[in-house]
Design a binder for these strands. Structure first.
Length: 753
DNA sequence: AACAACGGGCTTTTT
DNA sequence: GCCCGTTGTT
């Protein structure tokens, strides 16, 4: 067991104490994955059957990588049999084989967020509710957080607090929409993401024999990223381990960044209540980053009140200080970062994959894309619209879904007239009305049209009937035929391939290619388990695909590129050079988070996660103006820059050229470097006391005509004041930079006589 | 029933 | 600035 020599004392403890409940609090970069993989390897070395180990991870990618690493320690064939995956994918599989217990078809559909929102939208319409008020996204979030707390539609309607909240928000009918939504999902044989966990809970609650079966099977349970689990997940875990309590949870409260989708930090804090004789291990030595990065990150996170005490430290070298880059616009920010990457790449022995640009929102990628392309730097954007959410892909998958599950309403609506087969909106509307009157699925209505044509004209009736016949003919072959062969034939017979092939615009060609790529993926999926007697079917593929994210399929040509992604998707990754960009108030921290302390603390943890991705060097950047919703707005540097202990910040700041150069700057994209005088450093504490208190420079003396000084813009004169406290806004003319609009509560203006 | 033109809303973050 | 959905036109 030579692998045990590679562990430090607390890691070793966490790996070898395999029996009973245990919690590992693992600081950023402290070898958490190593502990998990070695613990599993150790279990198997000790003779535990891989079949009885269940390991729950946060992403499919993490599961895949961990499996590979375990394979390297103990040999691949044993590692294959471990159940490892996300909560969603593991319990989707279990639900598939147990679906009959809770009245669902085995081939139930998994609705993605888009499907769910579409369904909510039609229900809101049918109820005659105001769709400005009942926006699908808002309703979806309400339903989602109810489900994550195991509140059913009935429970929702009976919950006084929730109903009062909805009423005061002017949306008293959400509970009714929730109930209709559940009914419709059930009728369609569909579960949304949250249902996969919710229904698992129902299954385990109402069918103890099923619960016992899985308790027997999974003798050892491991949960990664425990800080990001919600109540629903917590309860599944608790039920599963109650027989033998061989549970290890690994997490870091400082990296909890998913409270917005129901993650419950209490799960970590309450662990000792559920398992009083648990063992606790703290991994505090960071192996990833320089001292500067570790200590700078510590200096930020200590501003949070809610946290478990720990002391992350490192033996690594001191390292370079954090660079701060200020630019005049989002485009300049793109150029500055691209130039910096270009320079480092030329001067140091690095490759493109050593650089990551991390941002708060996906929409920020554009300016970096343009600048990197101009310098011929290869890059890859993660996130945004996932491959599986593209229109053409969803269209083809909808055929697969409908073939596997005729009642899938969203899939039906999507493909009944795609490609165009002359079934128009009025006919479809008639089907929908009939379905809701007779409490049937769209398929059931469409498939029995010959008896009652609902006023649809004869030609259209026969077209609908042809469509049903085609779907039916594929269904028959679903369980017997090779998934790839069948899938390819569907793409052809449905007319999708022909339709896309006919489109010779660049977008059309790319859509055609995407379909081919999906088919390649299907081929790979079909061949993966060759030699094993169970042949994967198209419905198996659907489950996989529904829960796959774009981060899960890296292609070889993407391996050496600069990486761009949101901080959320960067969790668990590491890069030698990290650029955290768009560090501006209202962007990062997001303006949605500014109302409550706990939301702001989550943003701060997000910043902590971002910074701790860096191994060698971290660069922070912000722009003083950027385009948002199509118009130019002024931005203030993020409070998070101020919060870093200034001794970790580089005095040198890169600034883009001033506005006057705008005609020539487009071509050259040059940057100037200079040493900023200390008095105007963004991290100066002297004038920044306002950032958290909110009182700030918003005082009565700020009136038109007063001369002021701004930390970045220098001297200026107030030319206008508008708005009411606390959102009073000043228009200030700065001789050096021109006219600026500033919110007084953020601007830190200083009056000069 | 199919297509082109216009307008509104949007930005958190993801399984 | 962009994407989506709705409206109006043939």
């Amino acid at each position: 067991m030579g692998y045990l020599d590679e562990l430090n004392p607390p890691q070793l403890e966490a790996v070898t104490n395999t029996e009973g409940p245990c919690m590992v609090i693992a600081g950023a970069g402290s070898g958490k994955t190593r502990v998990l993989t070695y613990r599993i390897a150790h279990l198997i070395e000790k003779g535990v059957d891989p079949f009885s180990i269940l390991s729950l991870t946060f992403t499919n990618k993490a599961a895949k990588e961990m499996k590979e690493r375990i394979g390297k320690v103990i040999g691949g064939s044993e590692a294959r049999n471990i159940w490892m995956g996300t909560f969603h994918s593991v319990f989707a599989r279990i639900l598939r084989s147990e679906a009959h217990h809770i009245g669902y078809p085995q081939n139930f559909t998994i609705y993605d967020t888009q499907d769910s929102k579409n369904l909510i939208k039609s229900i809101v319409k049918e109820f005659g509710l105001d769709d400005k008020l009942y926006k699908p996204g808002i309703v979806y979030n309400r339903i989602s957080s109810a489900k994550n707390n195991l509140i059913s539609a009935q429970g929702y309607l009976e919950n006084i607090t929730i109903m009062a909240d909805d009423r005061s928000a002017g949306r008293p009918k959400i509970g009714e929409v929730y109930r209709a939504y559940q009914t419709r999902c059930f009728r369609a044989g569909a579960m949304d993401f949250d249902d996969l966990l919710f229904k698992t809970n129902i299954l385990f609650r109402d069918h103890l024999e099923v619960l016992y079966k899985y308790q027997q099977r999974f003798k050892y349970l491991l949960v990664d990223e425990y800080q990001d689990t919600n109540y629903s997940q917590y309860l599944i875990v608790k039920k599963l381990v109650s027989a033998n309590e061989n549970l290890v949870v690994v997490g870091d409260d400082a990296q909890s960044i998913y409270a917005f989708r129901g993650a419950n930090i209490e799960n970590i804090l309450n662990f000792k209540k559920d398992y009083p004789d648990y063992k606790l291990y703290k991994l505090e030595q960071n192996y990833r980053s320089t001292k500067v990065i570790v200590q700078a990150a510590n200096s930020i996170i200590k501003k949070n009140k809610d946290q478990i005490e720990k002391k992350v430290w490192t033996d690594n070298i001191e390292g370079e200080k954090l660079k701060v880059v200020r630019t005049l616009s989002d485009n300049e920010e793109g150029k500055a970062i691209a130039n910096s990457i270009y320079e480092i790449k030329n001067n140091e022995n690095t490759s493109f994959k050593d650089f990551a640009i991390l941002y708060r929102t996906n929409a920020q990628s554009r300016s970096f894309e343009e600048s990197l392309r101009r310098l011929n730097i290869p890059y890859k954007i993660y996130g945004g619209l996932s491959f599986y959410q593209r229109k053409e892909i969803k269209d083809l998958l909808s055929y697969y879904r409908l073939i596997a599950n005729h009642n899938d309403e969203e899939a039906f609506k999507r493909v009944i007239n795609y490609p165009k087969r002359g079934i128009g909106k009025t006919s479809i509307d008639n089907l929908i009305i009939a379905a809701s009157q007779e409490n049937k699925s769209l398929w059931e209505v469409a498939n029995s049209l010959s008896q009652n044509t609902l006023g649809i004209n004869k030609g259209t009736v026969s077209k609908i009937s042809d469509f049903c016949t085609m779907i039916q003919s594929f269904t028959v072959r679903l369980e017997t035929e090779n998934a790839y062969d069948l899938g390819k034939e569907i793409a052809t017979s449905s007319g999708i391939l022909r339709d896309l092939y006919a489109d010779k615009t660049p977008e059309g060609v790319s859509r055609y290619d995407n379909i081919q790529e999906l088919l390649n993926g299907l081929k790979e999926f079909t061949d993966q388990d060759e030699g094993i007697d169970i042949q994967p079917t198209l419905s198996d593929f659907l489950i996989d695909v529904a829960l796959l994210t774009n981060a899960d399929n890296d292609k070889e040509e993407d391996l050496n590129k600069v990486v761009m992604m949101t901080i959320h998707s960067a969790k668990g990754l590491e890069f030698p050079y990290v650029y955290i960009v768009g560090l501006e108030e209202n962007l990062f921290p997001s303006q949605m988070s500014l109302t409550t302390r706990s939301d702001l603390e989550e943003e701060r943890r997000l910043f902590y996660v971002a910074l701790t991705r860096a191994e060698k060097q971290a660069t922070l950047s912000y722009a003083t103006s950027r385009y948002r919703w199509g118009s130019l707005i002024n931005c203030e540097p993020s409070r998070f820059i101020d919060e870093i202990d200034p001794k970790f910040l580089d005095q040198e700041t890169i600034v883009s050229p001033r506005k006057q150069a705008s005609s020539s700057e487009r071509k050259s994209g040059f940057e100037m470097k200079f040493n900023k005088p200390a008095a105007t450093l963004p991290n100066m504490k002297k004038v920044s006391a306002t950032s958290s208190s909110g009182g700030g420079s918003d005082n009565k003396n700020m009136v038109v005509g007063v001369n002021v000084r701004h930390a970045k813009f220098g001297k200026g004169k107030i030319v206008n004041i508008e708005g009411a406290y606390p959102n009073r806004k000043a228009t200030v003319f700065f001789p050096n930079v021109g006219q600026k609009q500033l919110l007084l509560k953020f601007a830190k203006l200083e009056i000069i006589d």
